[in-house]
Simulated assay, not measured.
Amino acid sequence: MYDFVFHNPTKIIFGPDREREIGRELKDAAVGRVLLVYGRSSVKQSGLLARVSDALKAEGIEFFEHGGVVSNPVLSHVREGIALVRQNRVEAVLAVGGGSVLDEAKAIAVGVVAEVDVWEFFTGREVTAALPVFTVLTLAASGSEMNGNAVITNEETRQKYNIGTSHVYPRVSILNPELTHTVSPEYSAYGAVDAIAHLIEAYFTKQPGTNLQDRLVEGLILTIMENAETIRDQPDHAQARASMMWAATLALNGLTPAGVGPYTFPNHMIEHSLSALYDIPHGAGLAVVIPAWMQWYRPQNPGQFQRFASQIFGLHDGEEGIVALKKWFSSLNCPTTLQEAGIAAADIPLIRDNAYDTAKLWEVDKLYPPESIEEILQLATR
């Protein structure tokens, strides 16, 4: 184990019907005016928005709605939310939805207290303050409910960049697994892929010698796979939905990489270009990138890939493990090649250049020069 600091300030409230407690949590935090951020129609049709609104009204909390968040949240809509907050002197931001809604809420929380445009924080400026963020989660995937990360797409420049700061860890996140029962089979599958991606980034690129963290990762991956298969076959399986929701949260709340030393996030680096350029679901893009990256990277860490194959699939060869994971993605009806995702191989130079811009921003451009990114993308055509 390497030296580390682990601090996660988010309070998790987990269980059926717990969204009705959000009003009391905001009141306890001395919040009287809140921006209510959500997506499109699903939270209204399900009755969730009404329940949350009633919980706020019951505690005398004034709220202002900011709906219409899209699956890859965009900068222009973030700016609209910032203007709404400033106009109404809002004291906190409440996100009701999946990871995209939570990410936009965090971006608004950062931008509203800044004297510069919010996009500057996604291109390198340090975040020093933010409004408090609260969440009611409806999708098991991003882990945004218990971390300080947010990803936004600048639709004008076609760049998908992130922030990572302790200032946007949610104060309280409410996780009612029953809210995920109606998530479509496609997005349930994409959520599972996203959670697995969060786990394997550090698992494969970290320093050796952290067996405890490896076991945490492997246990979570096995849990995610088992429950994703159950959800595929029985979408309203209560225990599977609950286990998936908590596993996805644990996959990116800082627990599994604690003490592993330096690591990188190459799969996300490349996938951000796919969803920025083609607006495909993040999990679908990851299902394309991960097997290709694994094939490219395996010679740099063959022992860990052999361990992955053994612990996850009971196989003895690292290459077989990669093939097995790709087949598993396919079993959930996820695309595993660029073509299956509707992306032409002729676009690889465009994707390469876009991803290399992210590599430079993340300071991993020496590890991932343009030619290496192109090699990975070529592997994603097979």
Score class of each variant (00 low, 15 high):
residue 271 E to K: 08
residue 92 A to R: 04
residue 82 I to T: 07
residue 207 Q to T: 13
residue 308 F to E: 13
residue 178 E to F: 12
residue 75 L to M: 11
residue 139 L to C: 03
residue 125 R to A: 10
residue 186 E to S: 14
residue 295 Q to D: 11
residue 71 S to V: 13
residue 346 A to G: 12
residue 205 T to E: 01
residue 156 E to S: 13
residue 373 I to A: 06
residue 228 A to N: 03
residue 268 H to F: 00
residue 20 R to W: 02
residue 259 G to W: 07
residue 272 H to I: 00
residue 254 G to M: 10
residue 325 L to E: 09
residue 152 I to H: 02
residue 120 E to C: 09
residue 10 T to Q: 01
residue 285 G to R: 05
residue 164 G to E: 14
residue 132 P to I: 02
residue 351 I to T: 01
residue 113 V to Q: 00
residue 285 G to Q: 06
residue 55 A to H: 07
residue 171 R to S: 06
residue 247 A to F: 10
residue 363 E to P: 07
residue 89 R to L: 13
residue 8 N to Y: 01
residue 194 D to L: 02
residue 109 A to K: 04
residue 169 Y to F: 15
residue 262 P to M: 11
residue 342 G to H: 06
residue 363 E to S: 12
residue 253 N to H: 10
residue 125 R to M: 07
residue 28 D to P: 09
residue 190 Y to Q: 08
residue 125 R to K: 15
residue 72 N to Q: 09
residue 266 P to D: 11
residue 134 F to A: 09
residue 366 K to F: 12
residue 177 P to Q: 05
residue 215 R to L: 09
residue 103 D to Q: 04
residue 103 D to L: 05
residue 29 A to K: 15
residue 360 K to N: 11
residue 80 E to K: 14
residue 246 W to I: 15
residue 301 N to Y: 12
residue 191 G to L: 07
residue 189 A to V: 11
residue 362 W to V: 11
residue 69 V to F: 06
residue 176 N to W: 01
residue 76 S to D: 14
residue 251 A to C: 05
residue 148 G to H: 04
residue 154 N to C: 04
residue 200 I to M: 08
residue 198 H to Y: 03
residue 23 G to I: 07
residue 129 A to E: 15
residue 58 A to K: 15
residue 308 F to I: 14
residue 175 L to Y: 11
residue 271 E to R: 04
residue 265 F to W: 15
residue 248 A to F: 09
residue 218 E to P: 07
residue 202 A to N: 13
residue 142 S to Q: 00
residue 55 A to M: 09
residue 374 E to D: 09
residue 167 H to V: 03
residue 89 R to S: 14
residue 285 G to H: 05
residue 150 A to L: 08
residue 219 G to Y: 01
residue 261 G to M: 01
residue 346 A to E: 14
residue 182 T to N: 12
residue 223 T to Q: 08
residue 333 N to C: 11
residue 31 V to A: 04
residue 260 V to K: 12
residue 20 R to H: 09
residue 85 V to R: 00
residue 194 D to Y: 03
residue 10 T to D: 02
residue 231 I to L: 02
residue 233 D to T: 13
residue 226 E to F: 10
residue 317 D to T: 13
residue 241 R to L: 07
residue 340 E to I: 01
residue 242 A to T: 10
residue 287 A to Q: 03
residue 258 A to F: 10
residue 11 K to G: 12
residue 32 G to P: 12
residue 252 L to D: 14
residue 321 G to M: 02
residue 217 V to K: 08
residue 136 V to F: 02
residue 333 N to E: 14
residue 119 W to A: 06
residue 349 P to S: 03
residue 170 P to N: 00
residue 30 A to R: 15
residue 300 Q to T: 13
residue 32 G to A: 15
residue 379 L to N: 13
residue 355 A to Y: 01
residue 236 D to A: 15
residue 62 E to S: 14
residue 122 F to N: 03
residue 48 L to I: 07
residue 106 K to R: 06
residue 361 L to G: 06
residue 248 A to I: 10
residue 172 V to R: 07
residue 112 V to I: 12
residue 281 P to R: 01
residue 174 I to H: 05
residue 368 Y to T: 06
residue 259 G to A: 09
